[in-house]
Nucleic acid binder design. Structure first.
Lengths: 223, 223
DNA sequence: CCTTATAGCGACCGATCGATCGGACTCTAT
DNA sequence: ATAGAGTCCGATCGATCGGTCGCTATAAGG
């Protein structure tokens, strides 16, 4: 009678919802979006199944909320730290650095949630897969745009095919993800960096600037 | 009473077992190794759950049988068609060709079962994951050996790091797998081929042999 | 021919799945 | 003060999960 603790202000509810989503993201990266079960999640958080599901309605809505949160985290961990670099090669290389680090540090305990989810949703379609498609598309477009800038500025060969570069970049990062997840070998990050260097050669670091003199871009040491 | 059909010779039982495994592989590539459910599988095949499980004992044993069968298929579709090429660059390139084709043709309806399973078994360990590790290890070792041969024969730069090359090859193929599965874009196979060409440059196709004169290897047109 | 091994069945197990319900409770707005 | 909205609960739903059991009918082996 006294043990029931039904505290529930609007702010508290928001916090509860946050906790649910946060835990969902971590759990989903380990067990998969489908392996996420309401019962387990609820008992993990010390709340009831109905109380949990009340925030989302259906499991699918929870999955989508988790994916959207994962995108926010990805943006925070990978894109934003590199966003200030000069568009073009500099930013591409900066993004690759943060991207590799994001896998190396294990931001998601079970590896990149997007990659895992894609393979999980191989066959079936539906809102979850649609969202995944959109998220990957947006990310790819960002990278392609910067490759195009880099090629236009002469930082990459003029015959560069932007989509091709992004295709290969994605492969490098997926291979890293795969190696880390299967063998726990974070040393593979060095391999990924080498592969990136081959694909996006660093500008010559001579005392004289590269080829675009007036550019403030090329970060020498952005703190 | 009359509808029960308990035919069961040793040969018939073997065939039943084969049918189960075959269907399991296809289903697992679509729904995941864990998404494989005994009930669904049984009703798909028109047999009872207990009759199915009697062949394997546990679901885990069935998953392992499916993975082992998938390895046989992979070997048949990817390795064997290329195995006769000369060890070294020629065979590496041949393997990449069959490998890409294997993804392009959708040998497994849900993409490469090994890759999907790896990400599915991110967190948890156990016999399934151990098997995955061994299978990937064997495949990687094969490729590394051929890269080493190629480097030793001067078909690749002498400072080539074999593990690095295989790491990047794996990435290319995983990126292809990913693109096909998420967008159904088999056109990405061309991108994968271009990436392979960059990583494993084809030998100069001049009228004179490459650099190793007495070698019968370098297949000009092996039919 | 008769015994033994076994393939496959139907019935059933406890556990858990996602989801629904009515109610207890506390905020917030009037 | 009171009404309404919203949060979270316990109980419960039907379905399905992996797995077990006893049984029957046959094939295989002596």
């Amino acid at each position: 009678m006294a043990s029931v603790s039904p505290r529930r202000s609007a702010a508290e509810a928001r916090r509860t919802r946050e906790r649910i989503i946060e835990r969902s993201v971590a759990l989903a990266s380990l067990e998969g979006l489908e392996g996420l079960t309401i019962g387990r999640l609820a008992s993990d958080l010390g709340i009831s199944k109905s109380g949990l599901l009340g925030h989302f309605g259906t499991k699918e809505a929870l999955q989508i909320a988790a994916l959207e949160r994962a995108a926010v985290i990805f943006d925070r961990e990978v894109w934003r730290p590199a966003a200030d670099a000069a568009p073009g090669l500099a930013r591409l290389r900066a993004v690759c650095t943060t991207w590799i680090s994001y896998l190396e540090r294990g931001v998601f305990p079970g590896g990149c949630l997007f990659v895992a989810s894609t393979f999980e949703y191989d066959g079936r379609d539906g809102p979850v897969r649609d969202l995944l498609r959109r998220q990957f598309g947006a990310w790819r477009r960002r990278l392609v745009a910067d490759v195009r800038v880099a090629a236009g500025r002469g930082e990459l060969p003029p015959d560069t095919d932007p989509e091709q570069v992004v295709f290969e970049l994605n492969g490098i990062l997926m291979s890293l993800n795969h190696t880390i997840q299967l063998y726990g070998d974070t040393g593979a990050a060095a391999r990924a960096r080498r592969a990136v260097d081959r694909l996006l050669p660093p500008p010559p670091a001579g005392p004289a600037g590269p080829q675009r003199p007036g550019e403030s871009g090329t970060p020498s040491k952005p703190a």
